[in-house]
């Protein structure tokens, strides 16, 4: 179900509901005070939520001196030098590129491999299929910190440590289990007759999957893509352990390094935080509808 459409739908439903409760005799004044209090509470909550982001934005265009005199005031003259500074110190474009490589490698692998596995596991009856599916589901409760030590050792052995592509490959191994689970459930909604008809027409297994099934999996693929992109983009600990050379640093690692090195230079740090947030916020505002829907869907099914 589409969240946006759903919210539109119950807006329409709101009116008769208000009328009916009005008839039930609830005093109109009390109701108005009540909804005023609700709005006030939500406004305060929204201000608290946005306050850190607002403060970061505001003070990222001030000089250090101006920040000290009045931290809440608007800058007398916007100082964009902080951004130039942060841009260079975090090697912004390279860090952004590294992050994109990691996410792209991980996402491609997760979607391709889990859709294949999830589809066939869902379609094949029998013991082997059940055992394999159980094997994947089994791990979903294991906390990352319980496997990270050996994972780092293994990635050293395989010479993956220090490489952004290598990190992407690790994410494939960590991400497939949940994705297979989601695909496995979704495939059940696709009629089996479709497969049978295609096979009868002489369509091979792979062609059947890639040309007929995969496009039909699109809704759940979108959910999986959103959840995994958010996870990999914002993950900090694994890159921290894996990417040992600053040349392969992701956005988060570069920001963390800047924070460590220029501990008191808040203007540059805040500018770098804004720069690090920028891609995510743009993506969020552009794809909000899909993201919120994907989040709800993923959580309820998983």
């Amino acid at each position: 179900m589409n969240t946006y459409r759903a919210s539109r739908a119950d807006q329409k439903d709101n009116k008769p509901k208000m009328n009916s409760s009005g008839r039930a005799g609830s005093p109109r004044l009390g109701r108005r005070i009540g909804s005023g209090a609700v709005l006030l509470f939500l406004l305060i909550a929204a201000i608290v939520t946005l306050f850190p982001i607002y403060m970061a934005l505001l003070n990222s265009v001030k000089t250090q001196g101006e920040m000290l005199t009045n931290i809440l005031a608007w800058p007398s003259m916007p100082e964009f030098g902080n951004y130039v500074d942060a841009f260079q110190k975090t090697r912004y474009l390279r860090s952004l590129g590294n992050t994109i490589i990691v996410v792209a490698v991980g996402l491609t692998g997760i979607i391709l491999f889990s859709s294949m596995a999830g589809y066939k596991l869902s379609r094949t009856p029998g013991k082997l299929s059940a055992i394999l599916f159980g094997l994947f589901v089994m791990s979903t409760l294991i906390p990352f910190h319980s496997i990270m030590i050996t994972l780092v050792t293994i990635s050293k052995e395989l010479r993956l440590q220090g490489s952004t592509v290598g990190l992407g490959l690790l994410y494939i191994g960590l991400g497939v289990a949940v994705a297979i689970f989601l695909y496995h459930g979704f495939v059940k909604s696709i009629p089996r007759e479709l497969d049978e008809a295609a096979v009868m027409d002489g369509c091979g297994e792979f062609r059947l999957f890639f040309t007929i099934i995969l496009p039909l999996l699109m809704p759940i693929t979108a959910t999986i893509a959103i959840l995994n992109t958010l996870w990999m983009w914002n993950d900090f600990l694994l890159p921290l352990l894996m990417l040992t050379n600053y040349k392969s640093y992701t956005l988060l690692l570069s920001t963390n390094m800047l924070f460590g090195e220029y501990n008191n230079d808040w203007s540059a740090i805040l500018a770098s935080l804004v720069l690090a947030m920028l891609p995510v916020i743009i993506l969020y505002l552009a794809l909000q509808k899909y993201i919120l829907h994907g989040i709800a869907e993923g959580a309820i099914k998983a």
Binding site: S114, L121, L169, L174, V176
Partner: peptide
């Protein structure tokens, strides 16, 4: 169909 996922899963989740 399962092998590619299984290889990565075995190496980076089960083995660790």
């Amino acid at each position: 169909f399962v092998l590619p996922a299984l290889v990565f899963y075995a190496a980076f989740t089960l083995a660790p």
